[in-house]
Design a protein around this nucleic acid. Sequence first.
DNA 1: TTGACAACCGAACGAGTGTTCTTTATACTC
DNA 2: GAGTATAAAGAACACTCGTTCGGTTGTCAA
Lengths: 217, 217
Amino acid sequence: MRKLERLSERQQNILRFMDRYVAANGFPPTIREIGEATEINSTSVVNYNLNKLVKLGYLIRTATKSRGLRLVKPMSDRPVRAGSALTVELRGLIVAGDPVESFTDTNEDPVEVVPSMLGGYDPSEVFAVRVKGDSMIDAMIQDGDVVILKRVDTARSGEMVAVWLESTGETTLKYLFHEEGGKIRLQPAHPTMEPRYVNARECRVQGRVLSVIRVVK
Amino acid sequence: MRKLERLSERQQNILRFMDRYVAANGFPPTIREIGEATEINSTSVVNYNLNKLVKLGYLIRTATKSRGLRLVKPMSDRPVRAGSALTVELRGLIVAGDPVESFTDTNEDPVEVVPSMLGGYDPSEVFAVRVKGDSMIDAMIQDGDVVILKRVDTARSGEMVAVWLESTGETTLKYLFHEEGGKIRLQPAHPTMEPRYVNARECRVQGRVLSVIRVVK
DNA sequence: TTGACAACCGAACGAGTGTTCTTTATACTC
DNA sequence: GAGTATAAAGAACACTCGTTCGGTTGTCAA
């Protein structure tokens, strides 16, 4: 670990901002962008502090070149590997009326996601469906949304799951709660909507919702 | 391995040079530096080919920024993974009552996303907000959702935007339509909810919604 | 008090840099 | 042949951006 104690508040801010900026943009910031982010009003003061940081060994500068700035050791060599995307199989379209498993493979590409959207599970334990139509509005899910699910056949109270209801022959996404007497309460995500009570035997859990992705337009 | 056959000699040279340059310097080259290295005499021709490469998905450009150039997949980080994830700055919490710009930096980590969620834009042109509370339910967005927005201050009809309404002092996410007489219709995403009509002057567009991410629980 | 020095501000200069415009040439389609 | 799209060149423009310079403030030792 490097000592940050010798650096002034501003110099620490500059290093932190540099790190974030490079990670986000792929190129270093300008003097003025640094000034704006760290609330330094004068470009010369930023310049002054940058030269300080060079002398202290935190930065390398390429004189006269715009954005000619580079961290000696980016903090973003963090343990969690940023930058990797995973692919999840897109199982098909979900439409009220069909159990999830019966979906035929569509020709859609697999979905690219980031590890945090899988709740730590391996892509192989997980599948994705694209919702078709507005039948899931009470689950706050609209036409075109992609839902990432973990393959499970049971659920604990409070989890959001995809269930297929034998009686009505439909698939819905609801919060599931176990009630007394083998009853199950299915609670829509939409707060003003009423829950629904069904028999435990007639509802087949298809998967637990891990995340929802909506790409507009 | 990606097909390089579709690229012209010059375009291949540009990509190769880019890769070498970034590895060596830590920041991308300028148009003129590219031209010199690849023996292209005119900056406009470099510019022309860069735009081609963007369209073909090899590069991401940040307009008007010097060295605002980045390889989609640097050849140097070989062992090819599924794809690359990008990071977007998380600007803060959105709460009804504050314009987006006033958000102070939270200490939350930047959001990791996949390129398709940015609609082709560079991460720097884009920001993310975490929605707090249930005030956006009519936009089909719930507590905890992360909304990815492109920084814009005007919108075309039919786009979903974040607007700050001066009169009521609130921020909402709505589909925006320009009506006759300088009026603007703000249409909720939820199909059963009524639109709202406001004066063009009193609504400030903060950003266009690109995507929504919901991680359950 | 004086002088030295670190830290800072504001403004201006000039080179760096992305963009745009006009023009030319070639290849393809209708 | 006319019209359109691609590829390229050169020049000009306007903004970006690193650099420099004069001036201010505060601290500390002599």
